[in-house]
Design a protein around this nucleic acid. Structure first.
Lengths: 180, 180
DNA sequence: CACAGAAGCGACATCGACGTAGTTACTGGG
DNA sequence: CCCAGTAACTACGTCGATGTCGCTTCTGTG
């Protein structure tokens, strides 16, 4: 695993112990979504945190690295003009590709379903064979952007020691960075 | 123009004179959408008929062949999971490609806009250069499907002489043909 | 001229997705 | 033990998109 970002163990400043994972507001910052979206997506079954689900007021949802990656994929699909309904369908495909080296694949959505294509050749084959719309998202961009965001919020903040709360509330700042 | 479908002159059974075009309910049948969708899209400026707009109760909207083609593109974008909002943005690109041989192009939606790509090579270039989601729709499929639909409803109907009303109300029949 | 048919129109309803704001309750530190 | 802080929760509102239904009006035919 060439990346310097630990996937199973959170960075300093993110909870304690190996299974702590990421808290809701942190996930909002990393992914670039509002708390309301995160909550709605959890409550409607799009993505519930795999470490710890919500157990009522005062508790915390805990998301794994892969949870956050999936959320990042969903966000980029929405930014790319894909409907939430279609993104719901696509997410299942990601879960089947859990063990794969996602960074070297592309998520391809077509009329017949979603697949993880390995390399440009496979994508081109899908292009030639398909009809209707093909939606193609290279996963390398998602992984790189997420890893960069994790490193960015893990570094000590000079100006503001509440990065998760303030960053999540600043409209447009993360969206601008993610394109669309 | 190899196709046998007249673009400027409507087929027998479709109004009179060279500029008659297609009526609203006929368009619904050809494209596979409800009258409500056609009406909403006209009223909200997504696509207003280029031959004759609505002038109140009792009058008829008249759509050109290219109008219907654009509507078909929108419908296939929606079937492919693209949001209506994003389809609105993409339609402008089609209008800029009016004179082109659309059947040999692919409509490509990316974070930076929409383009009509000519040939697989250009699409592959866009794949390699881009980030985020690419949505690709070969126009040949749209043109072929529309031409086939036009020929289909122009032929004399044996069972039912109200093809536009009944076909538009049959759920799934046209959607099944268009995939997704 | 009268009338049936067809298409456009207005209006209310529903639903998904999410914004906003106040409340609840858990957790950790003093 | 008390309390501040934080995150989840509840509830109402907004908006886009579309379904449904009844009304209006134009057009063509008898």
């Amino acid at each position: 695993m060439p990346s310097s970002v630990p996937r199973a163990v959170p960075l300093p400043g993110f909870g304690a112990g190996p299974a702590a994972g990421y808290r809701g507001p942190q996930v909002c910052t990393l992914v670039g979504i509002t708390y309301r979206q995160l909550d709605y997506w959890a409550r409607t079954g799009l993505l519930t945190p795999s470490i710890t689900g919500a157990r009522g007021s005062g508790t915390q949802r805990r998301y794994s690295y892969h949870d956050v990656l999936e959320l990042k994929v969903i966000k980029q699909l929405l930014d790319g003009g894909i409907s939430l309904q279609r993104a719901r369908q696509a997410v299942d495909c990601l879960r089947q590709g859990l063990g794969a080296d996602l960074a070297s694949t592309s998520l391809v959505l077509s009329g017949s379903g979603s697949v993880l294509a390995h390399g440009d050749g496979e994508v081109v084959d899908l292009l030639r064979g398909g009809q209707g719309v093909l939606n193609i998202m290279p996963m390398s961009g998602v992984v790189d952007e997420l890893d960069a965001a994790i490193l960015s919020i893990a570094e000590p903040q000079v100006s503001d020691t509440r990065p998760s709360a303030d960053a999540a509330r600043r409209p447009g700042e993360h969206q601008a960075a993610s394109g669309g």
